[in-house]
Amino acid sequence: MIPQAVDYKRAGSVSEAISLLAENPDAKILAGGHSLIPAMKLRLNSPSLLIDIARIPELRYIEVRDGGVAIGAASTHHDIISNADIQSRYGAMIEAGELIGDTQVRNVGTLGGSIAHADPSADWPAALIALNASIKVEGPNGAREIPATEFFLGFFYTALEEGEIVTEVVLPAPAAGSRSVYRKFMQPASRFAIVGCAASVTIDGGTITDATVAFTGVSADGAFLDEAVGAALVGKAASLETIEAAANAAAEGAELNEDHYASKTYRKHLAKVYAKRALAGACGL
C-alpha cells in the first residue's frame, strides 16, 4: 500500500504552516498522521503537499491556565494521558485517551489531528464536549475559539474553515464537586467506539447540580451533546434510579449509525446502557 506521490514540508511555526496552506489549497496538514497516512495508503486521500506541524514547539505543551488546562494541538495522546494536571482534573480525558488506538498510536497521534479529522467514532470529541472544552483555531483571517459543542458538525466535518488549523484545546476549570468519566463499547476489530459516552457530573450534598453527557460512535453525524439526559438529572438525587431513568432517554432523536457490528436498535440500546454506566461512574456509584 503506497500513497500517491506527494510533497512534504515541515513547518517551523504556526504562521508558516498557515501561509503554506494558503499557497497550496490542495495541501493537507500532517501532525501524527495516524488518520491521514492510512487513508493516503488506501488512496482515499491524495493531497499534493503535506505540511508537517508535529514538531512546531509552540503547538506541543500542556499548561494549567485559570484553573483549567490548555493543550497544544500537537500534543500526543500519550502526552495527555500521562500529564498529572489532566489526571487530577479530568477523568474523562484520561479514560478516553487510554482507549484510543493502542500504545503505538497514542505515542504519535495528536489531539489536534484527531479532532480536526473528526471521525464519527473517535474518543476525544465526546470527552471534549462533556467537559465543555473549546477549540482554538488559527487561519489567514486570524484566530478564533470555538466551543466543542459547535466544533463537531458531522461526519468527518468540523467548524474549521479553509486554511485554518487547530492550535489549542482549552479545558475549563472543573467545578467543585464535579467528576468526569468516559465509558466505551469498542468495535472489536478497529477498537473505535461503537458507543463512547463521556459524562461530567457535579454533585452538591447528594444532589446533582450539573450533568453533561456526550456520545461518540452513536451517530453517523459524529459526537454530540445529549442535553436531555443531562437536564433530566439536574436537581435530582445522585442515585442509580434517577440515573437509569435519565439514561433511558439517551440518544433520543439522534441520527443513528449502523454497521455490521451494531444495528441502529442495538446502538441505541448500548447508548442507554453506557449512559447509565458513565453517569454511575461520574456519580461515584
Binding site: H34, I37, P38, L42, Q104, V105, N107
Partner: peptide
C-alpha cells in the same frame, strides 16, 4: 495496510511507533 497489526513497530525517539503509518520524512 491499516496500522492495525503492529508488525512494523520500531522505537522513534525511545517510544514504540508503527512505522507503516509514518512517512520517512516525518522521522527526519
Amino acid at each position: 495496510d491499516t496500522s492495525s497489526c503492529g508488525a512494523c513497530t520500531i522505537h522513534l525517539d525511545g517510544h514504540a511507533v508503527k512505522s507503516c503509518s509514518m512517512l520517512a520524512a516525518q522521522a527526519d
